[in-house]
């Protein structure tokens, strides 16, 4: 997501104005920002609150604090299996998506070839078009091939929309890569493989990690594609989806809170790692 230079060129500078210079009023913007964050976090706050609710249904009124839903969710075998499946699916899908995304980004950055722009846009189609299109298209395809739906078909589906997700940040970073570094490495006698592993990859490593993390996150929580491609084994969102429509208890809120806590910890840790790398 970068600003195209053509837009900068098309900028018309503001003409002189007789009005006196005014001070901006950041307090208005500040209160708006506060409101928006409140809006973003209201459902999450409700969710966390409900996970402690001593009631058998996931709803108000608040009947008191209990930790039962947490102990129940930790001992829930179906939830645990679904969680393991989700981690497996997201890890495999992320690996495939990042690998192919990295290759595609390198091809786009490094080479000139026929239909390059079309290739770039076509790779982005899985995230430009709604997930349901990917889901039903792959369902029809796998059924025509006679392939049984399983966690593997889910992995393939997630790897497909994960590719553009990983491609984005890698390509943005690559476009900022100073080519003179590459040229210097060649002049010093490095071969293309050495140039990639020794010069280019270290430069884009944080973008690769960011892309992979994003692909993992989106896969881990994906519903729409998964619904069409899943077999008998459930991922965590599929398990939650099943329960949302039948027996919904605060246990689901506890599970969601735990997932949020763990992923927040992972994200903050990776942020800390990249900021340490930068200094």
């Amino acid at each position: 997501m970068t600003i195209s230079p053509s837009v900068e060129k098309s900028l018309h500078p503001a003409s002189g104005n007789a009005l006196p210079r005014q001070q901006a009023k950041p307090w208005l913007l500040a209160s708006w920002t506060l409101l928006v964050y409140g809006f973003l976090y209201l459902p999450i706050a409700v969710l966390v609150l409900m996970s402690f609710n001593d009631s058998t249904i996931l709803s108000l009124p608040f009947k008191g604090i209990t930790l039962n839903w947490y102990s129940m969710s930790l001992g829930d075998r179906a939830i645990r299996l679904a969680l393991i499946n989700s981690v497996k699916v997201a890890a495999m899908a992320t690996l495939l998506a990042t690998l192919f995304g990295l290759l595609a980004a390198f091809a786009i950055y490094r080479y000139r070839f026929f239909g390059k722009e079309t290739f770039r846009i076509a790779l982005n189609l899985p995230i430009l078009l709604p997930g349901i299109v990917t889901g039903v298209a792959m369902l029809a395809y796998f059924s025509d091939l006679g392939l049984d739906l399983s966690l593997w078909t889910v992995i393939l589906g997630h790897a497909v929309f994960g590719l553009p997700v990983a491609l984005g940040p890698i390509l943005t970073r690559l476009s900022q890569f100073p080519r003179s570094l590459e040229e210097a490495a060649y002049d010093l006698g490095a071969n293309p493989g050495q140039v990639f592993t020794g010069v280019i990859f270290p430069y884009i490593r944080s973008a690769v990690i960011a892309g992979a993390l994003l692909a993992f996150t989106l896969s881990f929580d994906e519903v729409v594609v998964t619904i069409f491609l899943t077999g008998r084994e459930n991922t965590l969102p599929m398990e939650i989806w099943g329960r949302l429509r039948t027996n919904i208890t605060p246990e689901i809120a506890a599970v969601a809170t735990l997932v949020l806590l763990i992923s927040t910890a992972i994200v903050l840790f990776s942020q800390w790692l990249t900021s340490r790398e930068a200094t």
Partner: peptide, 15 residues
Amino acid sequence: PLWSSYLVRVFAWKI
């Protein structure tokens, strides 16, 4: 917020 379950966030609006 994207790291909390999308389904549960939708459901939270029901609550």
